[in-house]
Amino acid sequence: MCLGGAAAGALSLALPQSALAGAQIEEPLIDSVRTALSSAIQNKAPPIPEFGDTEARMAYLRWLGAMSERLKKKLTDWPTRKEFLQTVWYESRRSGLDVSLVLGLVQVESNFRKFAVSSAGARGYMQVMPFWTRVIGDSDPSKLFHMQTNLRFGCVILRHYLDREKGDLFMTLGRYNGSRGRSPYPDAVFANQRVWAFKDRED
């Protein structure tokens, strides 16, 4: 499935010239929150989509085809692109997040670079700060360069911030980026979220 001219133009306009990665700020967590986040991170379930019926599976495959076309210039290898999209879809849904929001955030944070490292030390696709591996992981920050680990940490952390901000996405994104209350980062993510939005022809 190919993008139309207008959508392709929007994609090129929304691509940041350099990643706007910031840094999540380490904050104290109460024991129950720490335990819940740690449990969410440690679930080793593989990111394999499961569907209740054929139509749900077909809708997913249409989404996968559309997103693959849009992402082709960033991730040229089909197996890598498929694994990335399948994992983003799985981890977004697992955390109750809109997959287009997560894709928009990945674009702004790392521009889809697996081994991106910010000046603050944030790592990988979703630019997760290494302190999170100590707080809720196994204290091995090198794992943040593993695709599923990075996307799982990023989605779990984003969900945590969304809950803390009582559903306010603007403040959530600012907290994720370490720029809470300032508009450039949330605005950039929202702009890229629109690029990754998917309207199923069957809707």
Rank of each mutant, 00 (worst) to 15 (best):
S100D: 15
F115Q: 14
W132F: 04
F131R: 07
M126H: 09
N111F: 00
R159V: 03
K143M: 07
A122H: 10
K143W: 03
S118G: 06
D138L: 00
C155A: 12
I136K: 02
L158H: 00
F145T: 11
R123E: 11
V128F: 05
R123V: 09
L105S: 04
R113I: 10
V128C: 01
S139W: 00
S110G: 06
G154W: 11
R152M: 09
F115R: 13
S139V: 01
R152D: 14
Y125Q: 10
V156P: 10
C155Y: 10
L151I: 15
S110A: 11
D140Q: 15
V102A: 01
S118L: 09
C155E: 12
T133F: 11
F153C: 03
V156E: 12
G124L: 01
A116R: 03
A116H: 04
L151E: 04
L158V: 02
I136P: 07
A120V: 08
Q148N: 14
K114I: 00
L101A: 08
M147F: 04
A122K: 07
G121E: 06
D138T: 04
S142L: 03
V106E: 09
R134Q: 11
D140H: 07
P141Y: 12
Y161L: 13
M129E: 13
M129D: 13
I157V: 15
S110Q: 12
F153R: 02
V108Q: 09
S142A: 14
S142D: 15
S119V: 10
G137Y: 01
G104M: 06
S119C: 00
S110V: 02
V117P: 10
L101E: 02
S142P: 01
Y161E: 01
C155Q: 00
V102Q: 09
S118W: 05
S110W: 14
L151M: 12
Q107K: 05
I136Y: 08
A122F: 12
V106I: 15
V99P: 02
R134E: 15
F153E: 02
F112A: 11
F153S: 02
R123P: 09
T149Q: 12
G154H: 13
V108G: 05
R134F: 06
R123N: 03
N150C: 04
L144R: 00
G124N: 06
L105H: 01
I136M: 06
D98H: 04
T149A: 11
G121N: 08
L105G: 08
T133S: 14
F131G: 10
F145P: 02
S142N: 07
R159C: 03
G137Q: 07
L101N: 08
C155W: 07
F131H: 14
K143E: 03
A120H: 14
L101R: 02
Q148P: 01
L103S: 01
W132T: 14
